[in-house]
Design a binder for these strands. Structure first.
Lengths: 205, 205
DNA sequence: CCAAAAATACCAACTGGTCGGTATAATAGG
DNA sequence: CCTATTATACCGACCAGTTGGTATTTTTGG
């Protein structure tokens, strides 16, 4: 068999992810996950020390996947152009396509779930979320720094400010998208942000 | 007595709000609220049909307060200037001050809590959240339409696009603010958005 | 105006069910 | 056979919600 069936651990994590993104972490019971996977307590507590351990592994796996995806987007953006601003634009477009093509009926960000249920989690898990968001931001910081190194902005602005703004816009877009049941609010917001960049760097092109 | 002590119902709602904003709705038990208020089951189920009823009343009260606050901000902004763009700027500044002066250690938006725990709530509650967010947006739409009626934007853009962007930025700012334990991320993001407006409407002033 | 009646507000104890978690037994693969 | 994995059975704590009751306030009718 070239492709082994999904491991029990991964089946548990996948099911847990779906429940957590729909009902929150506290709203997701271990029994929910077991019913969805057809497994039993024995399997669950063999793979996870407890529900808190599930929380940690869940967000760690989510962060790993996200990071890989962003690195892939960055790679594709870099091969599309040598211009740093065009690379940022390409990166954002890849992100937009990814979000609006999600087959998930109610996509969202797991970090947002964790931060809005913050008292459910250990400090180390919350620190991990905070750190990972900073890491996500710093990917953008590097990209925008390259832009600022080449082009003069129309307003005094730092790479960090721009990076934090697109992260913020993305998170907010996902909240609104979920609230309204859209598939394209986040993409729309990202496009708006690209408009802003166009105005900020008029010397480009 | 000129000022009656806070009603039992309001005490329950206040305590519930604090718990929900810290642990989520599913993570908040009725007993949590009762322990915090010193009340008992009898009082709770006298004032609310059940936990679902609490959810509804909680978000309705939140929306009412928010709406009043925004109307007050709008009133103050209008009396500060006759220029529609300056009014928007003043409104945003009032919002920024409000968010970063919040005594709440982890402020946030209740609508975000509800949308990220969406499967915990009845359809009518979720519809209410969606409608209220749209209402919030449309306050901005009216303000931006006044701006567009007077000034030519540097890029073709609609009032709705701008309105949805500032709502999105606000929601996202609150997520990041909670994640990092800041008090000023949201204010920072709103300032960025004002930069964008400055670039968009260069003919102003 | 006053007392009977009724509605309101709250309490303490309890119920059936679900929660996360454990102990142990069965099963399976190298 | 032996170890990793999964199933079964069970536990105490906690969950939302119910019950029966008691003050307190409001309404009503003579």
């Amino acid at each position: 068999m070239t492709q082994k069936a999904e491991s029990t651990r991964d089946r548990l994590l996948d099911a847990a992810r779906d429940f957590v993104m729909a009902k929150g972490f506290a709203g997701t019971s271990v029994d929910d996950v077991l019913k969805a996977t057809g497994l039993t307590k024995g399997a669950f507590f063999h793979h996870f020390k407890g529900k808190a351990d599930l929380a940690r592994e869940l967000v760690r796996r989510y962060a790993l996947k996200d990071l890989k995806m962003f690195q892939e987007f960055q790679r594709q953006a870099q091969e599309q152009s040598d211009d740093p601003l065009e690379q940022v634009m390409a990166f954002l477009k890849l992100f937009e396509v990814y979000i609006s093509n999600s087959e998930d009926p109610a996509p969202g960000c797991m970090y947002a779930v964790y931060t809005y249920e913050s008292r459910q989690f250990n400090a180390d898990v919350l620190d991990f979320v905070s750190d990972t968001l900073r890491q996500w931001t710093s990917i953008y910081v590097r990209m925008f720094q390259d832009v600022l190194d080449r082009y003069e902005p129309a307003l005094p602005i730092t790479a960090r400010q721009l990076a934090e703004m697109i992260v913020s816009v993305s998170e907010g877009g996902l909240v609104l998208q979920r609230a309204h049941g859209d598939t394209d609010t986040t993409r729309w917001q990202s496009e708006q942000f690209r408009n802003y960049l166009t105005l900020l760097f008029p010397t480009a092109r």
